[in-house]
Amino acid sequence: MNRTFMTGYYQGVVEVAPAALSAAQVEELAVTMTIQHLRHAGVAVTTIHDFLVDDIGADARLVSQFINLDAAQLEAAQAKIMAIAFK
């Protein structure tokens, strides 16, 4: 998977995130969705981490918080953020 595609996926999440979310919540949503998507595509965890931190500039602590979660845990984190947007 090339970096252009990975960057486009992350940016797409940021662009379509609900306007009711704060910048921090949008970043969290984009990080969790990108991790889940790239892991599903078979990208190595270290590659995902380096991409998010080095290429995208995502908060390293945020990436570390979510990088080792399984799909169900990532979906739960995403659902929590989306629930905030639609309160």
Score class of each variant (00 low, 15 high):
I35C: 04
H37V: 07
V45G: 00
I35V: 11
T34L: 03
V53E: 04
E28P: 02
T47N: 13
A30W: 08
T46S: 13
D54E: 14
H49G: 06
L29G: 08
T47R: 09
M33A: 10
D50N: 15
L38P: 05
G42L: 11
E27A: 10
D54G: 01
I56F: 02
T46P: 04
I56G: 04
D54R: 05
M33N: 11
I48V: 15
I35P: 06
H40E: 15
A30L: 04
E27H: 09
D54P: 02
F51H: 09
F51S: 05
D54W: 00
T34V: 05
D55Q: 10
V43I: 15
L29Q: 09
T34E: 07
V31H: 05
R39Q: 15
T46D: 15
T34S: 15
I56D: 03
D55Y: 09
I35W: 11
E28S: 12
F51R: 03
R39P: 04
T47L: 10
D54Q: 10
V31D: 08
E28M: 04
I56R: 01
A30C: 04
I56P: 01
H37E: 14
G42V: 13
L29C: 06
A44P: 10
E28K: 12
V53G: 07
M33T: 11
I35D: 09
V45E: 14
T32S: 11
L29F: 11
V45R: 12
T47Q: 14
A41N: 14
L29E: 11
V31Y: 05
A44W: 09
T32P: 03
I48G: 08
T47C: 00
H37Q: 13
A44V: 07
T34P: 04
H40I: 14
I35N: 06
V31Q: 05
R39D: 14
I56S: 02
L29M: 11
I48P: 07
R39A: 14
F51V: 02
L52H: 03
M33V: 00
D55S: 13
Q36P: 02
L29N: 08
H37T: 14
D55P: 00
V31S: 03
V45Q: 13
L38R: 07
H40T: 15
V45T: 15
H40S: 12
I48H: 07
V31G: 03
L29T: 09
T34H: 05
H49M: 07
Q36S: 13
E27R: 10
I56L: 00
G42Q: 09
D55C: 02
E27N: 13
E27T: 10
I35A: 05
E27V: 04
E28A: 13
V43K: 03
H49D: 13
L38G: 02
